[in-house]
Computed example of a mutant assay.
Amino acid sequence: MGLSVHLLLILGACALDALLGDPVYRLHPIRVLGAWTLCCERWLFAVGLNGYLGGVLLWLATVAGALGSWWLVHAALALLHPWLAMGWDLFIAYSLLCARDLLTQGWRVLAALDDLPLARAELQRLVSRDTETLPPAGVVRATIESLSENLTDGVLTPLWALCLFGLPGLILVKVVSNLDSMVGYKNARYARFGWAGARSDDLVHWLPARLSVPLIRLAAALLRLHSRLVFPTALRYHALLPSPNSGWSEAAFAGALRVRLVGPIWHQGHLVNAVFMGDPDWPAELGADDLRRALQLVLAACLIALLAGLVLAPLRSLMPW
C-alpha cells in the first residue's frame, strides 16, 4: 500500500467516524468477532482446555480468524477491482474507530444531568460499576474517568496502530481489546483462561497510555486548562488504579482539570475503592461545567492524536505487509 493510499485510508476512516459515528447493525465486525470468540471459548471449555493453554489457543484463533476473514474478502475484491478492496478496507477501518461514539455518550450524560435517573442510565453505557445510587457529582466523576480511560483504549491505541501498522495493526488491537473485555477477568472461570487476553491487552496499550500524558498536557495548554499540573499528577497518582495503563490518562485528566477523580466505587454491591485521585484541596463535587471541560479536552486530544498519527504514517512503508 502506497503512502497516499494509506493516508487516504486514515483520513477517510476518521472522517466517516466523525460524520456518522459507529454503525449499528447485526453483523458489525465487533459483534461478529464477539460471536466467534464465544464460539471458540465454548469449544475449548468443552474439550477441557480451560487453562493457560486454552487461553493462548483462544487468542490465536480469534486473531487468525479476524485477520484471515479481512484478508480473504480483501483479496477476493481486489481480483474484481482495486477500488473495491480499498472500499472494504475503508469500511472495516471506519467500523473499528469510535472517537465520535465516546464523545457522544459523554455529551448524553452531560445533557441528562438535570434528570439524575436518566444520567445514571446513560452513564451505565460507559461503565461497569454500580450507578443506581450515585449522586450527581459521582456521575460526573465516573463519566470523566471513563472518558479519560477510553481515550487511550478506544482512540489512541487503535488510531496509532492504524497509522503505523496499517489495517492489520488496527484489527489486532481491536481483537486484543475485545478479548480482554470478554475473558480478561480475575475470577474462577477466567483467572487462567483469560490470562493471554488480559496480558496482551496490557501490552498493546502500554506505550499509548504513557504517551497520553504529554498529549493531554498539550491539549490542556491549547484549552488554557491546568497544563502544568498534568505531569506531576500523572506521576503521583497513576498507580492508584490496579490497571498498569488506565491510571496514566485518568491522573493526567485530574491534573488538567484540577479536580479529584475516582473516590468511592461500588461494584455488584461491594465497595472496591474509596481513595480519591488528586490533591486533597482540589474539588471532588463536580458538575456540568467540569464534564463540559473534560469533553473539550477529549476532543482536543483526539485531534492532536490524529495529527501525530499522520506525521508517523510514513513509517508504515517500513512494514513488510
Rank of each mutant, 00 (worst) to 15 (best):
H6R: 08
S146V: 12
V173C: 13
L126A: 01
R258N: 14
A209H: 05
L156Q: 05
V56R: 08
L303V: 09
L134D: 03
M182D: 04
R108M: 09
L118T: 11
E250T: 02
L123V: 11
R31I: 05
L229H: 13
L312R: 00
V139Q: 08
P208W: 00
T37E: 13
S227I: 09
L295S: 10
R192Y: 04
L27G: 01
L223P: 02
A78S: 08
L167S: 11
P214R: 01
A252L: 09
P280M: 10
G54Y: 01
D114C: 10
R31N: 07
C302T: 09
W248E: 09
M86Y: 10
V63W: 06
F193V: 05
A284E: 13
H81T: 00
P135A: 15
V298I: 15
E122H: 13
T233G: 01
V73H: 03
L49M: 14
T143I: 11
A301W: 01
P29G: 04
A111R: 14
A111F: 04
R316I: 00
L303N: 00
A220I: 12
T143D: 14
D153Y: 10
R217M: 14
V262F: 08
L179T: 14
S4V: 15
V175E: 11
V259L: 11
G287P: 08
A188C: 02
L203T: 10
R292Y: 12
G2Q: 09
Y185G: 12
L16R: 06
G12F: 03
V204D: 10
D89T: 15
C98D: 06
L97V: 05
L38I: 00
S317N: 10
